[in-house]
Simulated scan of single mutants.
Amino acid sequence: MLQENKRIKSANYVSNYDAIFACPICQSTMKVLESKSLICSNQHTFDFAKQGYINFTSYPVKTKYGKELFEARRKLITEGSFYKPLSHAIAKIINEHKGKTKETISILDTGCGEGSHLSNICDIVSSDSFKSVVGVGIDISKEGIMVASKSYSNKIWAVADLANTPFKNKQFDVILNILSPSNYAEFNRLLKTEGLVIKIVPQRGYLKELREYVFHKPEKQNYSNAETVERFNENFQFVDSLRLSYTMNLNKSLIQWLVEMTPLTWTATKERAKSFLNKDAAQITVDLEILIGKKTIK
């Protein structure tokens, strides 16, 4: 019964915003019907899952990102406050650029994973600016979206392909792209005329202590995002870029969640990963670049 309530509550919430959707099959308009499905004008139907999310993909997608990884990431973010400075930095950017001019701010997180980044940022933006915030999170991983929809209510969660998102043109004030793949043509399509895209990329010091510990080769220990930054600047009107660097002191539980959450350990030897897991404490560097761009007007 609880799961049925979750499905109905989510459908009722989405019905307030169903005007943003376009069918990923035929691009026609969509409506929530009978508190259980999103249906387009050509009768293509997408049901709400019992956890409250919608799956817009027409085929199962296999990824290495499993439920355990997303649960570990959620704990690291919520209980460990690992990305708290990042959430506040992003919220500040949104409020500086959007807080004074809009009563409602719509935010799309592309590659949202288990939803903690989006939920935290929406909460901070709302509390700092007293604005109504509509948060929408999409990811290709069903496991991530399941965790998101179980954990965070009053958001729109969807399994969707970044190359074919289920939304009409010019629907979002802000697009977030946090440590995940991009589709810049789609971002420009979805942004409102004065919309912002905020992309987070790792800088050379990101998780350097973990990389240096689990990898022997120098090329695996270092990271460059020069090409990523260049591509971003080619696709959007440059607004600003900020460097965010800080260190976190992790206890044994936080170390375990970090190792479980990061793909860095996938290619490391089991011995090196296990050895890092056996530490009682560790200091870890978070080193990120925040890229801010505006929609390209053509």
Rank of each mutant, 00 (worst) to 15 (best):
Q3G: 01
E4N: 15
N5M: 15
I8R: 14
K9L: 08
S10P: 13
D18C: 14
A19F: 15
I20P: 12
I20R: 12
A22R: 10
P24W: 12
C26N: 15
Q27L: 11
Q27M: 08
K31H: 13
L33T: 11
S35L: 00
N42P: 03
Q43F: 09
F46R: 06
D47C: 06
F48A: 05
N55V: 03
K64N: 11
Y65E: 07
E68L: 04
L69M: 15
R74G: 04
R74L: 09
K75F: 00
L76Y: 02
S81L: 04
P85Q: 05
L86R: 00
S87M: 03
H88M: 02
K92I: 01
N95Q: 05
H97R: 13
T101F: 10
T104L: 12
T104K: 15
S106R: 13
E114C: 11
S116T: 14
S119Q: 13
C122N: 14
C122W: 12
D123R: 14
S127P: 01
S129L: 04
V134T: 13
D139V: 09
D139M: 10
K142S: 09
G144V: 10
S149F: 03
K150W: 01
K150Q: 14
Y152S: 10
Y152D: 07
V159A: 09
D161G: 08
T165Q: 15
K168W: 08
Q171H: 08
D173P: 14
D173K: 12
V174G: 02
V174T: 03
Y184H: 11
L191D: 09
E194M: 03
G195I: 06
V197F: 11
I198G: 06
E212D: 14
Y213A: 13
F215Q: 09
F215E: 12
K220N: 15
N225F: 05
T228P: 04
T228V: 15
N233T: 07
F236R: 06
Q237S: 12
D240T: 02
Y246H: 00
K252P: 07
K252V: 03
S253P: 06
S253M: 04
L258A: 04
M261L: 05
A268P: 04
T269D: 12
E271R: 08
E271A: 08
R272Q: 10
S275E: 15
L277C: 01
A281G: 00
A281T: 07
I284Y: 00
L288S: 04
K294D: 05
K294G: 10
K294P: 02
